[in-house]
Amino acid sequence: MEDAIQFEKMIKEFSGFKLGPLNFTLEPGKVLGYIGPNGSGKTTTMQCLTGLLRPESGYVKIFGEVNDPNETGWKSKIGYVGDKHVFYENWSCARNLKFVSQFYPSWSDKRAEDLIKRFDLDANKEVAKLSKGNRAKLSLIQALAHDPQLLILDEPMDGLDPVIRSEFTNVLFEVIENEERAIFYSTHITSEIGRLCDELAFLDNGSLKLKTEKETLLEKWRTISFQSTNHDLKLPGVVEQKVSGNEFIIKTQDFESTLTALRELSISDITETRLSIEDIAIHILKGGRNVESL
């Protein structure tokens, strides 16, 4: 099966900013969390992916088709929730949905109605009078009602309350039940994607620092506590070290090799805990020492 997304040497440049070259893929059935601080190039990546921006070089393929804005096949396969929600402002939500529905053969009014109920949205309300959160809801309904094969989400939970966030996450889990679909999820709030993502990609200042399986990342990155009288330890994979007396607390990006080294030094009473994705993201995006790159 074709990759849901394929970035091939894609570069996008503005004055004073360069995104890429990006080279990575997203397989169907997977959820990729695209993590980076504000201004790192996440939204630009999304805009290149959806054809709103043309890259200077390289290309993006969606299910094997180059995302030429003049071609329609790939566009009907995607659902997009961007950082800006664009509608006919003086029309009601229902009228806006009706307008969009005519362009998608796979559009389901029943699914749209179901989502309106689940997200508790007043369909008869004029879009111009909607709150930021409700605009995001309408955008999500619009993106989901045609049952897209690829869902592209750029900070989709921005402005949503916790109840709707939870409902939205449930809907995404339903989307991914079908293994032919994929989700590309950009955010700077890592707590949003911990449960959902299979893979994580970290972007900083326009370049991709790391793309890996979430489980691999959580396996490799650990906090280790131990005691040692030797204060001059050289341990592999360590990205942060705190020493208080003989008590060491280290953070490692390569748990296995750090553990092996500690055992070789005959250090016992080792306790280890997993790091949160947020902690890992901070280390990777800060350009932490020895962080492996792609």
Binding site: T50, G51, N70, T72, F87, Y88, E89, F103
Partner: peptide, 19 residues
């Protein structure tokens, strides 16, 4: 109004040719 509501962006996202 067309400009402020980013109508081109809205339409460019739909599965229709830019032309």
């Amino acid at each position: 109004m067309r400009h402020s509501e980013r109508r081109n962006m809205q339409h460019a996202l739909l599965p229709i040719p830019i032309v």
